[in-house]
Amino acid sequence: MTMQFNDETFRGDYTYHNSPEAIRRFPFPFDQDTYMYSVNIEQHPGGPKGTPFEKMFDVDEHYVAEMKDREITLAEDPLRCQSLPHMELAGWDLLELIMVSKARDYPDLFTLHRDGNDWHWINKPLGIEKKFTFLDATTLPCGPMEYITRQTQGDFALLHERDNNLWMDAGMITSQADWSLDFDVGMNFFEWHAPVPKARKMGVFDKALKFLLAVGQGQHYRRLNWTMTVNPRLDTSPENYHKWGPEKRTITPENVGQKQFLRVELQTFFRLPRSNALAFPIRCYLMNLEDIATKPKWGRRLHRVLRDIDPDLAEYKGFAVNQKTIVDYLSQFDDGAPTSPGIFPD
């Protein structure tokens, strides 16, 4: 195998780290020096070679460790993975999409042999080899959505379309930015987004829903979203808020560069062929301020964005209590020079 996978943790001793290559390819989410909500959607996949936009489902050095962390979270709380009864077919659609894409994009890591409905899947990084019958759930150890998302980085929501709306009727959610699948499963697009401030009045959700409903077979799109997380923790769930909440108050001027992470979500959308459901993978990338600032353009820009952000958004994204410490730290990297357009480092 050509890719090296990190031995690292996302809890406890937090040994998560990014290599120079991971820093270089980090999906920095700001294409200008200010931020406000937008429906920033573009086609997926597609992007410069080596970026996380190049392949359908990006696999990187954190793959094996992220899957171990998911296993721990699911063992503690099986309700993080739920699928309402009518969603099994969408689960098979997702399994097919991921297996076919990964075997094509990473032939040295994944192999898929298909003979009719007799499938043979080999996942080398996780040491899995499985023969099963496509569309027959009794031939897998668990449902198809759970099976494939235990082997794929990122959270996954499967959205059922009816009544001109999208309903979150299944999901694998173990690295969420503070929302509960168990509470939200079964909600429609406006209901599960209800707690997001300002955006409804700005028309963002109406536009986004209209766009998503129009996504057709074979069309794939992406957008970036972001928040801030103290420590490289994937499981920032509301369920465990009373456990990770105290960590948010441990930021000091001395440790902020190492402990404060920018959390970027690469969100993609795929229309699924049999179920007509939408797959909505939410892939999480974490990088601390110290590593971000190694790219001068990113250090300058992040300082300006976080300094000038709408106070409601700082509150919603959960970093208002640490905003001053963060901005003071980042100011050392901002010499006032102009920044180039786009998200990539110079």
Binding site: F183, M187, A194, G245, P246, R249, V321
Partner: peptide, 19 residues
């Protein structure tokens, strides 16, 4: 005010989680 129709409940979240 966040409400789950499936469960028929409003959501309660720890108020002093951080402090």
């Amino acid at each position: 005010d966040h409400f789950s129709r499936r469960l028929g409940v409003f959501q309660g979240v720890c108020v002093d989680a951080e402090t």
